[in-house]
Nucleic acid binder design. Structure first.
Lengths: 227, 227
DNA sequence: CAGAATCCCATTCGATACTG
DNA sequence: CAGTATCGAATGGGATTCTG
């Protein structure tokens, strides 16, 4: 039983008062930030996390969850409805890390050498919408778009420059994207592969207002490459 | 001679197309981001970096510099004036990581449990000015402020909501802060310790327009605590 | 299924010593 | 000064096993 040993901050790696260094103490360990990412759209179970994080081991996931809990980023709760169902949920402060994830993603996307064909979790894709959303391309558009990505459902609203994304029943959307895996949608949104091609080759399906779906898909753009 | 082995991207830790994950491949290793931080205000020599990074070893610093160079964040150049003087300098893309550093610092500062008494490098302090600057408190103020922190000189300008910080002769400032170490200024700006107390106890010195200095010092504020 | 405990190997780190 | 080389110690991570 060494669960309680680590109430104190995890690492104390760097001996540095700088906020950046302190941030790294909290989330700088390998995998930590990706765990946070997967929780960013709501609580998830242990096995959900394992499924979304391609190659993390159970041991490491356990350790990271404990560390993040000790550092105040998340809490573990048992679902009210079903006892015996454990979930991990970000604290308010954990959720506050989203701009950080976005900034990191935006910055990394300015690099060439990024392989967009690697696996991608549904949450990653949905978060990237918020990051790569270009408000100017959405003026005057108010709509709800549903997503079913690898079986996970999300609902996105466009509303005056903001782009709320949440888990929820996709059929509230006036248009719905259905994809067997997240990279299919990444191809559509970021690699400008055509809807038709993806419907034929990659199992993409679009329900509802097809024109709206097309317009929506054009609202996202990667940042310019710097290197 | 294994310097050339690693032209390819360093780690390939995560098998994940997400931009955030890719960013972590590039700068997620221990120390990497702090090395970038120290270069953010201009090129530095190997020994400068060692001096600013409290407890990094020569080996690890060498490794990180090589990795960051391979990943395109920095280049090593020999100073034009003095041959045989090597410096490390961020690429354009490396400099583009500043908002990321800021976001991480800002987020981390929302946590309690941050020990502001740890050592702090001059560059950390100067960068934190940009992060914690409150433009609303600076409206109508146009001035140059000099800094000499642990012997390193900087010049800061306030100009309509921006706060350019650069290395340069501090005596161009209408007011100049002189401190034997960065934490002294941190106490002034962020812990609201009074100028008088720091002059008496901590070796702070202020030259030039004292009222301007006071007003300047009041322009910075830490974000509210969330946890 | 959700983890905790154990085992063991690979990597990494830091200290020290060394070199041009 | 600017690293490189080496080595022992610490840590990390995967695989496996065990439990509720």
């Amino acid at each position: 039983m060494k669960l309680l040993k680590d109430t104190t901050l995890h690492g104390r790696w760097y001996d540095d008062a700088c906020g950046t260094a302190f941030g790294l103490e909290l989330i700088g360990e390998r995998w930590s930030l990706l765990v946070v990412r997967e929780l960013m759209l709501g609580p998830r179970r242990f096995s959900d996390l394992r499924a979304s994080l391609p190659s993390i081991s159970a041991k490491v996931l356990t350790e990271r969850l404990a560390g993040l809990e000790a550092n105040g980023l998340l809490r573990r709760t048992t679902l009210a409805a079903l006892a015996s169902v454990q979930v991990y949920e970000l604290t308010q402060w954990g959720y506050a890390a989203e701009p950080l994830l976005q900034e990191l993603g935006r910055w990394a996307a300015m690099s060439s050498g990024h392989d967009p064909l690697l696996p991608l979790s549904p949450v990653s894709l949905m978060l990237s919408l918020r990051t790569m959303f270009d408000p100017e391309k959405a003026v005057g558009l108010e709509a709800r778009i549903g997503f079913i990505v690898a079986g996970e459902e999300f609902l996105v609203e466009t509303a005056e420059g903001r782009l709320p994304v949440r888990r929820g029943s996709s059929d509230l959307g006036e248009a719905v994207f259905i994809a067997p895996a997240a990279p299919v949608l990444a191809a559509l949104l970021y690699a400008d592969v055509s809807v038709e091609e993806l419907e034929l080759d990659a199992g993409l399906e679009i329900r509802g207002d097809r024109g709206l779906a097309q317009r929506f898909a054009a609202m996202f753009e990667l940042p310019p490459k710097l290197a």
